[in-house]
């Protein structure tokens, strides 16, 4: 466990909490893509099946359970509790465009051809693209609430910190996981454009709106 990994996990957790607090306080999930949140719930579900098969550490188990619970509460808030505020019209990304290639790729390129390993691989590939419906929604409406941009910032920061973690682990432990690293790089690239807007607009007190 290194500092990048801990900070990465903390910003991941922080992102999910920010989103939940935003929805809970405003009693609205306007501007949030329900599809992205369903994908994240699917990511955690397929990745953390090893909760039943292998024990890694108390930290690992507790964080996995928290992530799963947060993801499902978020989906519940969007589709059940505050469904009237959900902007279904603009959340129009076609999920099959992500799910079909990701499923195919996880069968083709994995560490071993076993059900758990294929599901883990599926979750890694899916996570790298799961934010696309949310980014698509923002590009469609042309704006995002400031708190939503904080959520996205911490979600992107988490993946960027994991990249630092992998570089660290490669040098100190000679550990690397090619599937995770390649997907992590792809995932981080998706956030670059957003990071630029976040720094140039949101941090200067302006609302994120696209021209």
């Amino acid at each position: 466990m290194n500092i990048f990994r801990i900070l990465g996990d903390v910003s991941h957790l922080l992102a999910m909490i920010i989103l939940l607090v935003k929805i809970w306080r405003s009693k609205s999930c306007a501007g949030i893509s329900g599809k992205s949140q369903i994908l994240f719930a699917l990511v955690f579900t397929t990745r953390y099946l090893d909760l039943f098969t292998i024990f890694i550490s108390v930290y690992n188990t507790v964080m996995k359970v928290i992530f799963l619970v947060c993801a499902y509460i978020t989906v519940y808030m969007i589709y059940m509790k505050f469904h009237k505020t959900f902007d279904r019209e603009h959340d129009s990304f076609r999920l099959e465009f992500l799910l079909v290639p990701v499923t195919g790729l996880s069968f083709l390129e994995n560490h071993s051809f076993t059900p758990l390993e294929i599901l883990w691989t599926f979750s890694i590939y899916l996570e790298s693209v799961a934010i696309l419906p949310q980014l698509f929604m923002i590009s469609k409406t042309g704006e995002a609430e400031t708190i939503t941009t904080h959520y996205l910032f911490f979600l992107g920061l988490y993946r960027a910190l994991y990249l630092a973690n992998w570089i660290w682990r490669y040098h100190t432990e000679n550990f690397y996981d090619q599937i995770a690293v390649v997907s992590g790089v792809v995932q981080t690239i998706f956030y670059c454009d957003f990071f630029y807007l976040y720094v140039t607009k949101v941090l200067k007190g302006k609302k994120l709106s696209l021209p």
């Binding site: 890694i56 690992n60 992530f67």
Partner: peptide, 10 residues
């Protein structure tokens, strides 16, 4: 080396 025995990252 690549690991295939469990994934310790979240």
């Amino acid at each position: 080396q690549e690991t295939t025995e469990g994934h310790d990252e979240l």
